[in-house]
Amino acid sequence: MIELEIDGQKVTVPEGTTLMEAAATLGISTPTLCWAPNLDPATACRVCVVEVEGSRVLVPACGRKAEAGMVVRTNSDRVRTSRKMVLELLGSSVDLSAAEQVKPWMASLGADPSRMGPAAPPSAAGERDAARAGHHHATDGATAATVCQPIKVDNELYVRDYGKCILCYKCVDACGEQAQASFAIAVAGRGFDARISTELDKPLTDSACVYCGNCIGVCPTGALQPVTEHELRQEGAWEPERQTQTDTICPYCGVGCTLTLHVQDDRIVKVTSPHDASVTGGHLCIKGRFGTRFVAPRGS
């Protein structure tokens, strides 16, 4: 066991516990975007940073392991400034409208993305995918650059709205080594032009994608959405507060994955799996994720 101090309180945790988990035992919650319970920490978004005495810089609470004698502050001026700035930088460059969890953090930290300036016009389709590493057009500073761009719709099951992408790496990890092992997508490009991409930016239908939807399951911002959800949102008819969630077992094969059916108006509008389900770890295959039409009323 390891003893450390967080916000003035002593806490004892097992070896290997992260600072975020240690803080949680004291009832201190930590904002996270790139962390997921069923993936290794990418420690990329930095919204979870905390101050550790003796450390020159802040450390990511989601990935940093507790060490004996650490003195941690989760609410100092430095921590609040960095968290607020991370949210302002994201808020000013990415469409966070479908990232509901961010709103209360923004409010409590007083984040104001608009002080970065008016948003620059969105990029044309394919423009960000063609960016050359190490080269960009000079700016006059009059507008704030964003990643906004047209939605990619290239298959019947899900859409990729990379104007909402915060580059958290979760979809890449879920598609690759940590879950699906399809390796259909990766981060391409560099710096602000970095983006999630298939090889040569090919449509998903020409890629290694098997439509398991595990990338959708981990995406924290709604950048990846099942077509059903996307269409309902476009119509203004996506109403989570009216949806019920029912756990059941997938009927297709003998593995027995837990499915959570999101139902709105007697229609299954989305299928997820709990990240703590022992069989799935939150991950499914194409049948469980998308193969629900046979339950729908004929003709719908």
């Binding site: 080269h135 580059l167 560099r190 710096g191 602000f192 970095a194």
Partner: peptide
């Protein structure tokens, strides 16, 4: 240009 792009 030279930022790797990993962290926000």
């Amino acid at each position: 240009d030279e930022s790797c792009g990993q962290c926000v």
